Amino acid sequence: METPAFKLDGKAAIVTGAASGIGRAIAATLGAAGAAVCVGDLDEEGSRRVAAEIERSGGRAIAVRADVSRADQVEALVRATAEAFGRMDILVNNAGLQHVAPVHEFPLEKWNQLIGVMLTGTFLCTRAALPHMMTKRWGRVVNISSIHGLVASPFKSAYISAKHGIIGFTRTLALEVAEHGITANAVCPGYVRTPLVEGQIADQARVHGIPAQQVVETIMLAPSALKRLLEPEEVASLVLYLCSEAAAGITGAAYSIDGGWTAR
């Protein structure tokens, strides 16, 4: 039997948090597979740069500045995508940020910000995108959770709460939208070589009182079988698979890509 190609010709996708890191790799990978891509991010200059890279490679892309924690900006993001490409088929909820502090010192404004972007933002983007997918009776929602959506570490209470919530939301969504030809899955990466992770190294060093290199060796990679940071393109390849026809029978799943972290 012929294996379905991972091609997305004729589809239109939104990737949030796509100006750098994992989001940038996902946007580029979906664009290379034939999808028209809306590069969504608060970093407008970075979004434009990524969109230009996709177009230089022969793809179609637009850049839209959006704060995914705000319903009005999310609705504008989805509307811009549908107007530019005539459709809206794929949503990758990737926007995220981190703050490291013990619970008793965790600033309320940081808690609200992290939950607002990662959990509420995932809900808002999905709610706005679903009617377009339902009309076509085809859609893919891929939510970037984290290995910290499955396990916990100290000093990251807001991040871990949001990422656990994303998995619960994904499973609920999968049950609701299957009859419309839409799948919903979560991807749970371990530590990936991104600006977000590089920023965490300094934060963890400060909180634990140890050198930065020791953070990587004894905290970040200690539970992993593979003693290296993952590359953004590795995560993007899994997302491409979940968006393709090859994964049409997969929904409600949470896929770990964690270097063997949860094998223990």
Rank of each mutant, 00 (worst) to 15 (best):
I54D: 07
P107M: 01
S244M: 00
L240W: 04
P211N: 10
V142W: 00
W111P: 04
A263D: 01
V207L: 13
A82E: 07
V187Q: 11
E55A: 09
L240C: 01
R193Q: 08
E45R: 15
H104N: 10
L175V: 11
V74H: 03
I219F: 06
G139M: 11
A225N: 10
A5Y: 08
A84K: 06
A36S: 14
A184T: 04
I14M: 03
I22Y: 05
D41E: 04
G260D: 06
Q204E: 08
A246Y: 05
A236F: 05
A84D: 05
I62D: 07
I257F: 06
A80F: 02
A178W: 14
E179T: 12
V68D: 08
L42R: 11
I257H: 13
P232N: 07
G260E: 02
N112T: 01
A27Q: 07
I257A: 15
V100H: 04
K110D: 12
E2S: 11
A25P: 15
T120P: 09
A205S: 15
E55W: 15
A61N: 03
I90P: 10
Q200Y: 08
A33P: 07
R264D: 14
A84F: 09
G96P: 02
G23A: 09
S237Y: 07
T3L: 14
L230M: 10
A253S: 11
R56W: 14
G209S: 00
H104I: 10
G21L: 09
T172C: 15
R24H: 09
N112Q: 04
T120F: 06
R48D: 15
H208C: 11
L114S: 01
I201W: 07
G121H: 04
R24T: 12
I210P: 01
V142Y: 00
G10I: 03
W138R: 03
L229V: 08
R137H: 10
L229I: 10
L175S: 13
V216W: 05
G17V: 00
N185S: 04
A129G: 13
Q214F: 06
E105D: 10
K11M: 05
